[in-house]
Amino acid sequence: PAHPYDRLKTTSTDPVSDIDVTRREAYLSSEEFKEKFGMTKEAFYKLPKWKQNKFKMAVQLF
Rank of each mutant, 00 (worst) to 15 (best):
P1Q: 13
A2I: 15
A2F: 15
A2G: 10
H3K: 03
P4G: 08
P4K: 05
P4Y: 08
P4H: 06
D6G: 00
L8K: 05
L8H: 10
K9F: 10
K9E: 09
K9A: 07
K9N: 11
T10E: 06
T10I: 13
T10A: 04
T10L: 10
T10C: 14
T10S: 06
T10Y: 12
T10W: 05
T11G: 10
T11A: 04
T11F: 03
T11K: 02
T11N: 13
S12C: 13
S12P: 05
S12R: 03
S12K: 05
T13I: 11
T13Q: 13
T13H: 10
T13M: 11
D14G: 04
D14I: 06
P15E: 04
V16M: 05
V16C: 10
S17I: 13
I19F: 05
I19G: 04
I19A: 06
D20N: 10
D20F: 03
D20R: 04
V21S: 08
V21F: 11
V21K: 07
T22I: 10
T22G: 05
T22W: 06
T22F: 03
R23I: 09
R23Q: 11
R24G: 04
R24F: 08
E25P: 04
A26R: 07
A26F: 12
Y27K: 05
Y27G: 04
Y27C: 11
L28S: 02
L28F: 09
L28H: 03
S29W: 04
S29Q: 01
S29P: 02
S29C: 08
S29K: 03
S30Q: 12
S30V: 14
E31Q: 12
E31Y: 10
E31F: 11
E32K: 02
E32I: 09
F33H: 00
F33D: 01
F33M: 01
E35G: 05
E35Y: 09
E35F: 10
K36P: 01
F37R: 00
F37S: 00
G38C: 14
M39L: 03
M39S: 01
T40Q: 03
T40S: 12
T40E: 08
K41Q: 08
E42M: 12
A43R: 11
A43P: 00
A43E: 15
A43S: 13
A43Y: 08
F44R: 00
F44I: 00
F44W: 05
F44V: 00
K46H: 13
L47I: 01
L47M: 11
P48A: 06
K49S: 08
K49T: 11
W50E: 07
W50L: 02
W50G: 02
W50D: 09
W50A: 07
W50M: 03
K51F: 12
K51I: 14
K51A: 14
K51D: 08
Q52A: 02
N53M: 13
N53E: 11
F55Q: 04
F55Y: 14
F55M: 15
F55E: 06
K56I: 05
K56G: 01
K56R: 11
M57R: 14
M57T: 06
M57G: 02
M57P: 00
A58M: 14
A58I: 10
V59K: 07
Q60Y: 15
Q60P: 08
L61S: 04
L61V: 05
L61G: 09
F62N: 15
F62Q: 14
